[in-house]
């Protein structure tokens, strides 16, 4: 049997793309000390808003911008709740996700009637027919622009050092004259914008339409990838690729006759289980950012 290696690897990159956006967005917040469980809803909102604006304006550029803005606003909501008001981060995050999903479903029902599927123009692949490199533009953005940029910002810029300082020891950062609140707000808003962009990839690049199960747990995968990658950019991106590979493999197995008897749902569940297994192995004894889950108030 000749296994379509090139097709699987190409699919790996495509599947990993929204995860890179989402996981790096989550990483920014967590490095500053805030776990953003609003990610699942933020991906969903990015997907829906991107689709909505594309369907109404016909402009993919405008749609992408709208998804970024929607994501940034979602990040701002998380920042208002957890940074300014000091609300429990788990509750704020789940609440944000529930709100965004309900608001998008409501708007979807109201504007598109829920039932019929409106299809929009979508991004085409660059280098079509080029095998592994035949990818959507956003995939190039994720791997060649975003990941190196986040890596560089965290490692070599003042903003990145301030972010890490605030996440590790907010009292010391505050004493050194760094505004804890402003740093965390920035991390959450920028992180949310990245999540919105990642969500819009699903509608504007892959599907060209919006479905209610379009995100289906990818946000939770991103949160797991950040822990798996121990809050470092390179391992997080590698983790996204690993998940992408397993997801691409299960998609391939599903259409391979020899494996036709395996229930489809079991195959789809496989990558989730792989992530849990990976966490069980690599999640032991990880060191969380120093102020993880903790609101900062001056004594």
């Amino acid at each position: 049997m000749d296994f379509p290696v090139v097709a699987v690897l190409a699919a790996t990159l495509t599947i990993a793309t929204p995860l890179v956006f989402g996981a790096l967005g989550a990483l920014l917040g967590e490095r500053a000390g805030v776990l953003n469980l609003g990610i699942e809803g933020t991906l969903y909102a990015g997907a829906f808003v991107g689709f909505l604006v594309a369907a109404r304006s016909g402009s993919l550029a405008l749609a992408t911008l709208a998804a970024v803005v929607a994501g940034a606003l979602a990040g701002a909501l998380m920042a208002l709740l957890t940074v300014t008001l000091g609300v429990n981060q788990h509750v704020a995050g789940i609440g944000t996700t529930l709100l965004l999903v309900a608001a998008c479903d409501f708007s979807n029902r109201q504007l598109f009637g829920g039932g019929q599927q409106t299809v929009t123009e979508k991004f085409g692949r660059l280098f079509a027919g080029g095998g592994i490199v035949a990818q959507y533009p956003m995939t190039y953005v994720a791997f060649l622009l975003l990941a190196p940029a986040v890596w560089w910002v965290l490692r070599a810029t003042g903003a990145g050092l301030r972010l890490t300082a605030v996440g590790e020891n907010p009292e010391a950062a505050d004493t050194a004259g760094i505004s804890v609140a402003r740093t965390r707000w920035t991390a959450l808003v920028v992180g949310g914008a990245l999540m919105g962009l990642g969500g819009s990839f699903l509608t504007l690049s892959v599907l060209g339409t919006f479905t209610l199960d379009i995100v289906s747990g990818r946000g939770w995968i991103c949160i797991a990838l950040v822990i798996f990658g121990r809050w470092k950019v390179v391992p997080v991106v590698l983790g996204a690729l690993l998940f992408g590979l397993f997801d691409a493999l299960q998609l391939q197995l599903a259409i391979t006759p020899a494996f036709g008897s395996i229930p489809n749902e079991l195959l789809i569940a496989l990558p989730y289980l792989v992530v849990i297994a990976a966490l069980a192995v690599r999640g032991r004894g990880v060191r969380y950012p120093g102020s993880y889950l903790t609101a900062y108030r001056r004594a």
Partner: peptide, 11 residues
């Protein structure tokens, strides 16, 4: 193993 339950229960 001290693995964060938030992520595993969510997944």
């Amino acid at each position: 193993a001290g693995i964060d339950e938030v992520v595993t229960t969510l997944l």
